[in-house]
Design a protein around this nucleic acid. Structure first.
Lengths: 116, 116
DNA sequence: TTGACAAATCAATAAGCATTGATATGTTGG
DNA sequence: CCAACATATCAATGCTTATTGATTTGTCAA
């Protein structure tokens, strides 16, 4: 999941299942809030629940969604399960979007040349 | 929309409405496919419709979604409307995700220190 | 083993999106 | 102005996803 592909064309890479899945998981207010909190450090579900003002089952659902998208990692420590961001996955997503934007900018420059 | 904020904390910036909206718009297979195609250059709706194998009203709906999220730009040229990627918006999104990932990596390093 | 607590799962309902076909708007050329 | 074409919008339907409360699983400590 969100494995780093090398040398493939941006256009194909962007629309891969892993990328769609990760972006879909991120495209939700509550889940993005969770991601924002986790960017400051790992948290157990109970602490997260307080911070995001969600009931536990709902939070678990959203965490599962993020986990399945490869965006967060869970590690149990005693009674608690700590969630943290998968920074590699975020970096990879950022890289894909960045390269897509760059490709678009280059294409726009070409289009402008061809037109005028 | 997707205006660049400076100096604000990553955690707050990530979960902004504009970012959620853009990520939600991108988190769809068909729309991401559209974005991938547009990264190679601008296209009119009719050409896009052929490439993505969608009926025109459905494509228009997805384009509207992308437009409202600030991810694509539309310019009419005669009878045709050409869509292109908003590379600044993509760059901004990439930057936000990248900084979120970096913040998480730093936090993880701190957590590791504190723990062992 | 039992009691207490953390977290996940389940089943059911509600809410939001995608999709479709029909129709409307806008543009060009005659 | 009219005919033809490109695109957008609308209304209706179905599908996916979020949300809730109840229940289950897992862990610790006594």
């Amino acid at each position: 999941m969100l494995k780093i592909l090398q040398g493939s064309e941006v256009a194909r890479e962007v629309a891969s299942d892993a990328v769609v899945g990760a972006l879909r998981a991120l495209g939700d207010e509550k889940r993005l809030r969770i991601v924002a909190l986790l960017s400051e450090g790992q948290l157990c579900v109970c602490d997260l629940a307080v911070r995001v003002d969600m009931k536990q089952p709902l939070l678990s659902f959203h965490l599962k969604t993020l986990r399945e998208a490869g965006l967060v990692l869970a590690t149990r420590r005693g009674k608690w399960i700590y969630y943290s961001l998968n920074d590699e996955a975020l970096g990879y997503l950022a890289d894909v979007l960045s390269r897509t934007g760059e490709a678009a900018a280059e294409a726009a420059a070409r289009d402008a040349d061809a037109c005028c």
